[in-house]
Every structure is written in C-alpha cells, then in structure tokens.
Simulated scan of single mutants.
Amino acid sequence: MDLSEARRWFETRTFDASSPLGDLVDAKAGRRVTVILPARDEAATIGAIVQRVRTALCDLVPLVDEVLVVDSRSGDATAQVARDAGASVITVTDPDPAFDGGKGAAMRTGIARMQGDVGVFLDADVTGFDPAFVARLVGPLLRDPSLVLVKAFYDRPTHDGGGGRVTELAARPEIARRAPELGGFVQPLAGECAFVRDAFVDLPVVSGYGVDVGMLLHAVHKHGLDATAQADLGRREHQHQGLTALGRMALQVRAAFDLVLEGRDVVVDERWVPTRRADGTPDLVAERVETRLLPPPGADG
C-alpha cells in the first residue's frame, strides 16, 4: 500500500480537542455511554479515576451513563475501592478458566457486560486523571456515525527515558511490514479508546496485551480504515513496567498480528529471561508466553 494513504488518514482522522460538553450530550441522541476500566491490582489509582468520572461526567454533565470496573484477578482491594467510589464492579470471565487471558479477557468481559451503546476504555493506572480524556475520545465518535473506533494518543513524560519502547520496537516494525495503512496512528498500543459496541461484540478478542492492537486490526479489516480515528488527550502519566514485563508484552503484540492477519487461534513463544539467584550469581528462567484469540464477547449470550 502507498504510504500516502496513512498520511491522508492522519490528516483527516486526527482530532486535537473536544467541543463543549453540552454539545456532546446533545450528540448522544439517546445513546448510552459506558466507561470501562479493566483493572488488576490498581487500588492506589482506581478510586480517584472513578470519582472524577462520576462527578464531572455523570453528576455535573450527563455524558456518561455507566462506570464499569472489570476486576481481573486482583490481589489487592481494587474491587472494593472502585465500588466505594461509585463504580459497578464485575469479575473477569475467562473463556477457559485454566488460562489467564489478562487484559484481553478483561476488555472482552467489559464489552460483553456493558449496558451502553458506546464504550470508552480507560487505563486504571493513570495518575492526575482528567475527565476531559473521556470527552476527547467519545466526541468524534458521537458526532460522526461513520466511526466505530477512536484511539487515544498523548504526551507521556517518562522517568526512565524509555516510554513507548514496545510501540517503537515491536508494533511499528510489524505495522510497516504487514499493515502500513496503520502508520498514521501515533500510539497504536494505547489502551484508551472509544468504540461502538455493536461493531465489536461479534469480533474475537486477542488475549493479554495484544488486545489493543488486535482491536485496531479487527476494526480496520471489518469496517475499513476511515471507520477509525485518533484523539489527542494531551499530557498523561501512568506507571511504567519493568523490562521483563515489556518483553512479554512485545511478544503478545507481535502475536496479535499473526492471530488477526493470519487467522491463527494461538501463538506460543518460549524464551529465556536473564535473572540473578539469591546469592547474586546470574541465572536464566524459562518462560512460556501464550497468546490466544478469545471468542467474541457476544458468544457469552
């Protein structure tokens, strides 16, 4: 594909600001909006996010109709903190109880259980959360009936000089080789997005951290590139994962391209992870990373 297609899309489908909230309420036109937060061990941040969404976008301005937290096997008080802040809390449902579907399974559960016609996925580990994030994401989708997915992009200050490593080292090479039409997405792995439920309820979901790019690939394959857009959220901060976790994430991201573009059901990667023993001597630990294509949310009935 000619790279000019990605440039054309970028220039026509990139939004940098939202209109007044009152205009968005009118643009709902009877549709319900659900904010969904997949969360695992996010008790430190989930409460403030839920409270700010409910105060600004449920109580003051009736833009959001439901705030749904999907608790994904948390070992801390994530569920109780979210419930106390006013969210509806549900537990992740894995199609195979023996397989931990991670973030993908949590997002799949959110789509299956949401009451809204339009959904907004938010990361649950954001500090300094701004309710305007929701408005900027959902605004283009509410105003333009041709859109089914709006992805976020943002300025993310880093404390270790390594923000966006998985995007640049895993996602962008795959996009350049296998899906160049997606080259205009500033952050194709961003977890925040707005979407039309009916456009995704019958599509399979990639497990783990491959879910975000998998959702994008599915959307473009079924609905076309111009059914997607991206919105600038400005400055945003969240927690950073260690190198071992980022390596696992990169494998899941690359597997998503195989699952969606090649029609595979599962991709299994095996690797050695360097570590140190208790006495400080070097060691290697074997790790198996399995990424699956989970059944569509609508399969849960």
Rank of each mutant, 00 (worst) to 15 (best):
A176P: 01
G234D: 08
G110I: 01
G101K: 15
R40D: 02
R31M: 06
L217C: 01
F15W: 07
V267L: 09
R31K: 11
A105W: 05
R136V: 02
A77P: 11
D84W: 13
L169K: 14
P38I: 04
V201P: 01
T12R: 11
P282Q: 11
D65S: 08
A39M: 09
D84G: 12
G110F: 00
P180W: 08
P295S: 02
M215N: 01
I46R: 05
D26C: 04
L147F: 00
L169R: 14
P157Y: 10
A79R: 15
C58E: 13
V260F: 01
L189S: 04
G30V: 02
G214W: 04
S146R: 15
V64I: 14
F15C: 03
L203K: 03
R276Y: 10
R143G: 02
M114S: 01
A112I: 11
P140S: 06
A256I: 13
T158V: 14
R136L: 03
F185W: 14
T228C: 05
E262K: 15
H159Y: 14
P97N: 07
A278C: 05
V53C: 06
D23S: 13
L216V: 03
L142M: 10
R13V: 00
A278V: 14
I49M: 09
D71A: 12
V201D: 01
T281I: 12
A124C: 07
R277I: 10
V211M: 08
A106D: 07
G162Q: 14
A227T: 01
